[in-house]
Amino acid sequence: MSAKDFIQKLTDAFTKSEKSNIGKLFIIVDQQITSITSALKKTEEWRDIDNAQGKALNNLGENVGQNRGQTTDEVYRVLIRGKVARNASDGTINKMIHAISKSLNCKYTDIQIINANDSNSDDEHEPAAIIIKKIPLKALNEVGLSTNQFLQIVDSIKAGGVRVAYVTLEGSFSFAQGAIEEVSQEGFSELDQILGGMLGGLFTPGNDYKLPI
């Protein structure tokens, strides 16, 4: 209800005008109520990790015991989600993929991890090692995580004594085969840059710092 609505509800003993003294008082009160309502709404929204920023995000991190370090808000959100997911991980590959997807807020299918012992290559068999065949490049690039930082997250989730053999930076791009034109989501991008796959590759920031995990 606005100040004008309040004024109209006054009895006829008062001048029902925003320019009257009581009208001006209602306008001041209305401004204060609007300001408080806006602050309360923002407080409620910032309880959501995807919306929280700055100090509000720090508070959410402190609640789960995750330090910020020098991370940006985007990376800090990954660490907070990862802290919660890591607590539920038992080190198995399925749990690792679940924890990583929760951390990066990406699809489960964007990640592929296999045991090195299950590899088709005879040179890669190793019981206590894993191979990361596919990583969520788009999600990493969006938040500004480097390959090294991604591996730090994986290292904090994997079981003790298990080694990451190597990581394959696979993209989602594919060429047409034979005379068949490639028209899927993995083909060349259209002019609007909305459809089309991407080549493998990950942006590494100049300040590739160690994450506080």
Rank of each mutant, 00 (worst) to 15 (best):
L10V: 09
L10R: 00
Q32F: 11
K55M: 11
K19I: 01
N21F: 15
T34M: 12
K24C: 05
Q31W: 00
F26V: 01
A13M: 11
I49T: 09
Q53W: 00
N58D: 15
K19V: 10
Q31Y: 06
T43R: 13
V29E: 06
K42V: 04
I49A: 02
K19T: 14
Q32Y: 06
G54R: 09
Q53G: 08
A56G: 07
N21D: 05
G54I: 02
S38D: 13
A56I: 07
S35D: 12
T34G: 12
R47C: 12
K42Y: 02
S35H: 09
G54W: 00
Q8Y: 00
E45G: 04
S17A: 05
F26W: 07
I28H: 01
N58G: 12
Q32K: 07
D50H: 13
L57N: 08
E18Y: 08
W46Q: 12
S17R: 12
S20M: 01
I36C: 03
N51Y: 13
K9H: 10
N51H: 12
K16G: 00
L25Q: 08
K19R: 11
T15C: 04
E44G: 13
Q31C: 14
D30F: 00
V29R: 03
N58S: 11
D12N: 14
F14W: 09
G54C: 06
D30C: 06
K24M: 05
F26H: 02
S38N: 15
T11W: 02
I36H: 06
D30M: 02
L10Q: 00
I28T: 08
I22R: 06
Q31H: 12
I27Q: 14
E44Y: 15
E45I: 08
K24F: 01
K19D: 14
L40T: 09
S17K: 03
T34V: 06
K16L: 03
A39Y: 07
G54T: 02
A13L: 02
I27A: 01
I7T: 06
G23H: 03
A39T: 00
N58F: 11
D48K: 01
F14E: 09
E45R: 14
K55D: 12
G54Y: 05
G54H: 00
I36M: 08
K41L: 09
T43Q: 05
F14G: 02
L40E: 13
D50E: 15
I36F: 04
S38C: 01
L10I: 04
D12H: 00
A39M: 06
F26T: 02
L40F: 11
K19Y: 12
S38Y: 10
N51P: 00
I27T: 12
A39G: 01
Q53S: 07
S17H: 03
K19M: 08
Q53T: 09
I33C: 10
I33E: 15
L25C: 03
N58E: 12
K24Y: 06
Q53I: 08
S35G: 07
N51F: 13
L40W: 06
V29Y: 08
